[in-house]
Design a protein around this nucleic acid. Sequence first.
DNA 1: TAGGCCATCTGGTCCT
DNA 2: AGGACCAGATGGCCTA
Length: 358
Amino acid sequence: MLTRLFSDPSLLPDVQKYSGWAEDSDDEGSHVKDDDQDTQDDMDSSELRGDSRTQSEHAGEDDEDDEVEDEDDGGDTEGDRPKKRGPKKRKMTPARIERTKVRRTKANARERTRMHDLNSALDNLRKVVPCYSKTQKLSKIETLRLAKNYIWALSEILRAGKRPDLVNYVQTLCKGLSQPTTNLVAGCLQLNSRNFLTEQQCPDGSRYGNGSFSMHSYPYQCARLSSPHCQPGSNSHPLRTQGYCSATAYDSLYGGSGSPEYNSPEYEGPLSPPLCINGNFSLKHQGSASPENEKGYHYSMHYSGLPGSRPTGSHNLVFGSSGTRSGIHSENVLPYHDMHLHHERAPVYDELNAFFHN
DNA sequence: TAGGCCATCTGGTCCT
DNA sequence: AGGACCAGATGGCCTA
């Protein structure tokens, strides 16, 4: 048995980790659900009927695999000892043990795959929420919280239809996040968390912040600019011309000064679109040297009024590359893409578009 | 070292 | 019957 399991490389780590598993399973494998279920059904029905047949009689009706453990038969003959209730263990024949292990092994593999899929979906989510960092990954729970906050923040921007206040924006993003994540978000925005933490912790839970923040004093900076491709003055870079380096667009829009604080060594590589509230959503991708990937990750709402972000021939709210998602995992792209298509003609987008052209 | 986070195993439940 | 989903348990790794 173990020989068989060890021969499977994909199972090796688990087998090594749970070296005592085989023995345990042999002893307790009879608790496996479907094996017990049959016996449970038998016993439940007989007990409800007040069936006085002995367990050996039950066992005698079953096939070879349904034999009941001998130890369970002693209940009637051991004087005052209460009769054992509940499902009876079936004798674990070698064939049954083997089937149980195979079934469990397959279930474990499926579960691993399922969790890996879930994790990769979470990874994709990390790339589209604020403060994506390869070196400092958000935990799962923080990723979900931040994603929720981000959706809320964007909804508020759409609802208000006016220029978002950065402090409120960051506070909304950080609501309910841990201190380290809050610091991370603030760091991504080059904003000292002390500037808003006290307001964020206001117990009334309503809107935080006093709106005193000025984009001029704290120029919004997309941490993506830490990428050498996005350094100030690198407007010639194709990513910039296609609207990837959207912090500059934001600066232009909101009067950011484009200070030299662009360098943010702690966040390597391009960061996530949320920092780019000008609407340029460009999925972060690692090692995507291929042009196909560059095209594929370029779903953006291009606001042509933004200097340096106007893609050639683009028009308002046109989704990049005709919404192509080539080279992208369909897992996340589809809903993302569909969402954009779904809203493509929505009035709110016209409104937002007009807003960004003011 | 405690606590947080994570991967994995496991058994139960529900659904097809 | 088998797969998907879920939650609990467990142990490893990392960091303050």
